[in-house]
Structure formats: structure tokens, C-alpha cells
């Protein structure tokens, strides 16, 4: 039957994306200050010798970094496709909803008030997460009335909160010392250079959990492709689905943003690409966006740290330039397809 053929196509696509991710991760491990062969990478990963410096660098620095990239990219891609689904709008991404804005305000405040000296490495992520959390509940509270979620209201509130927070960040930047200013700019540009392995591990668990938590909603998301009211007429509890997915997607984004800073465009571009690749069925769209986002961020990070090595470009710059270009290219493809 045609159904079986469709499922087979899905499995092949997902396996290919999984291979792409594996290849990206391996490439990320090979390329660095000293570029090594995949065989050497595997030797280093297996090594238990504490005096083996290359192996130590591989296991504790490079591995941590590529895994962080994969984890964050996966969450951003997944959050993007979910939010675009519930808002039925291809321009929505996790950052449109003010989540990144809130995190920036949190981090900027932490830098300006020198909280960094108090808790060392955890201060900025915690401040960022507090900011993101505050925004999520603010946007959610303003976008909900009498238990009913107003999707348009939520979107408008998110965009406005974004503007307000970026103004607050600019205000802080304008009034603080040069050193703090640099710290804020550095954070805003985003980086996967996180040395705390516990945070990396936490993000990996968060990332996998995000897929496990949202996948059960795939059938309900499929029904909302008809519109919220028709989905409700098919017995789907649309209010509950939208609320749950909004909260899950934005909180997960908040966790990522607070650790790696603002890495834009992944949540916008990856869902588009996944749509072109697998169609609009969320049963395959969710894992495809997750895997695609993970690969995209790992590859972007490789570019970011090899173009002007040993210096690094901010990864947000790469995802923005590459992502924006791909987005325009896909928009072009979409147009020709409609007219043909």
C-alpha cells in the first residue's frame, strides 16, 4: 500500500539525517587547532591514559563542544517546528516570542551587577534562565484569558516583550563600564565554548527529553493543520495541546539560550528545510527538525571556529548568514513549485 511506502520513505529520511548528524559530530571532533583523522578521534575517545594530552583534549573539550552544539541545535529546531505549528505561522521561532529577550535581560543584569564574581560559571546561565522563565510566564499570562489561549495575542505579546527587552539591554549597555559592555556583547553573539561539563550533560538530557516529551503530541499537531476549530471538532483538546507545547518549547529554549547565548535562525530555517524534505506530517517532521537542527548547529560551529582559526567567529553570525541565505533560496524554490 501507499502507506507502507510512505513510512519507508520516512524511515529512510530519518536514518539519513541520523547519519548526517553522526558525520557532522565526527567532523566536529576531527577539525580543531590540530586537525586529526577519524581513526585518531576514535583512539582518543577510547583512551583511558590520564597523561595522553590529545586524548584528554578530545574527550573533555572537543567532545563536550560538539555534543553541546548537537543538543542545542536539536532543541532549537524542534522548538521552532512546534511553535510554527501551534501558531500556524512560518515566521515564528523561539526567539520571536521574547524568550531570548528575557534571557538577555537576565544575563545583562547579572553582568552589570557583577553577579559573575559570586557564583563563577553558573551565574550567567542561571540569570539567563531566570530571565527566560520570567518572559515565558509573562507572555503566557498576557496571552491567556479565562483559561483560553489567544494565539494572536500571545504572538503579539511575545514580539513586544522582545522589543522591550532589547531596549532594556541597550539601556544597560549604554550605562555600564566598557568591560561589562564586552561581556554582554560576547554573550549576545552566542558561543558553544562552554567548559562546564555538567552543564553540557544537563543540556544533552534536556535535549533528548524535549523530543520524548513533545513526540506524543504529534497526532494532535497533525489535526491542528486543519485549524484550531476543526481540530477541536475532531475531539482534540486544542487548548491543552497549545498550552503544553508552548510551555515545553519555550522553557527548553530558555535552558539552551541561557547556556549558549543567542544563536538565531536555527528555529526558523530548520523547520522550513524539514518541511521541504518530509512534508507537513508532524510524526516525521518533529524528529527530522530535531536531527536537522542538531547537524546544522554542529556544522555551523565548525565553520565558526575554522574560518579565522585560531580565533573564533561568533556562531550566531554563521547561523544568521548561512540560515538567512538558505531561507531565501527555499522561498524561491517554493515559488517556482507553486507556479509550475
Amino acid at each position: 500500500m501507499s502507506d507502507r511506502r510512505r513510512y519507508r520513505a520516512w524511515i529512510i529520511t530519518l536514518l539519513s539525517l541520523l547519519l548526517l548528524l553522526a558525520a557532522s559530530l565526527m567532523l566536529g571532533l576531527c577539525i580543531g587547532e590540530t586537525t586529526v583523522s577519524p581513526a585518531e578521534v576514535i583512539r582518543c575517545l577510547m583512551s583511558n591514559d590520564p597523561d595522553d594530552t590529545p586524548a584528554y583534549v578530545m574527550r573533555h573539550l572537543r567532545l563536550s563542544r560538539v555534543l553541546l552544539g548537537g543538543a542545542v541545535g536539536g532543541v532549537l529546531g524542534l522548538a521552532g517546528v512546534i511553535l510554527q505549528g501551534i501558531f500556524r505561522n512560518p515566521l515564528v521561532e523561539p526567539y520571536t516570542l521574547g524568550i531570548s529577550g528575557g534571557a538577555s535581560v537576565g544575563v545583562s543584569l547579572a553582568i552589570v551587577f557583577s553577579l559573575r564574581t559570586v557564583w563563577e560559571g553558573l551565574a550567567l546561565p542561571l540569570a539567563g534562565f531566570a530571565g527566560a522563565l520570567a518572559t515565558v510566564f509573562l507572555v503566557y499570562g498576557l496571552g491567556t484569558r479565562r483559561g483560553e489561549m489567544r494565539v494572536e495575542r500571545l504572538l503579539l505579546t511575545g514580539v513586544m516583550v522582545s522589543f522591550i527587552s532589547s531596549s532594556i539591554v541597550m539601556l544597560l549597555m549604554a550605562t555600564t563600564s566598557n568591560m561589562n559592555l564586552q561581556g554582554i556583547i560576547f554573550w549576545i553573539m552566542g558561543s558553544l565554548n562552554e567548559t562546564d561539563e555538567t552543564l553540557t550533560r544537563l543540556l544533552m538530557i534536556t535535549s533528548l527529553a524535549s523530543l520524548a516529551l513533545t513526540y506524543p503530541y504529534a497526532p494532535a499537531l497533525n489535526a491542528t493543520r486543519l485549524g484550531m476549530e476543526p481540530a477541536a471538532q475532531l475531539g482534540v483538546n486544542t487548548t491543552r495541546v497549545v498550552k503544553a507545547l508552548f510551555l515545553i518549547a519555550s522553557l527548553l529554549t530558555g535552558v539552551c539560550v541561557s547556556v549558549v547565548g543567542l544563536i538565531g535562525f536555527v528555529g526558523l530555517i530548520i523547520p522550513r528545510l524539514a518541511h521541504v524534505l518530509v512534508g507537513s506530517d508532524f510524526r516525521v517532521l518533529l524528529p527530522a527538525s530535531f536531527l536537522g537542527g542538531a547537524s546544522f548547529l554542529v556544522l555551523s560551529d565548525i565553520v565558526a571556529r575554522s574560518v579565522i582559526a585560531p580565533l573564533e567567529l561568533p556562531i550566531g553570525v554563521i547561523t544568521g548568514i548561512v540560515g538567512g541565505t538558505i531561507f531565501i533560496a527555499i522561498a524561491g524554490i517554493g515559488k517556482t513549485r507553486v507556479s509550475s
Binding site: 497526532p219 489535526a223 493543520r225 486543519l226 485549524g227 475532531l234 475531539g235 482534540v236 512534508g279 507537513s280
Partner: peptide, 22 residues
């Protein structure tokens, strides 16, 4: 207002209320 889904997929959505939610 239905997008890129096929007629067959669309018609199958009629089974949603008869299915276990997950």
C-alpha cells in the same frame, strides 16, 4: 483552509476521535 496534505490523509483525520489519543 487545508495545506499540503493529500485527500487521503485528510479523510483519514476523521478517525481521530475513534483513536486512542497517542
Amino acid at each position: 483552509e487545508v495545506g499540503q496534505i493529500t485527500v487521503e490523509e485528510y479523510v483519514l483525520m476523521g478517525r481521530i476521535p475513534h483513536r486512542p489519543p497517542v
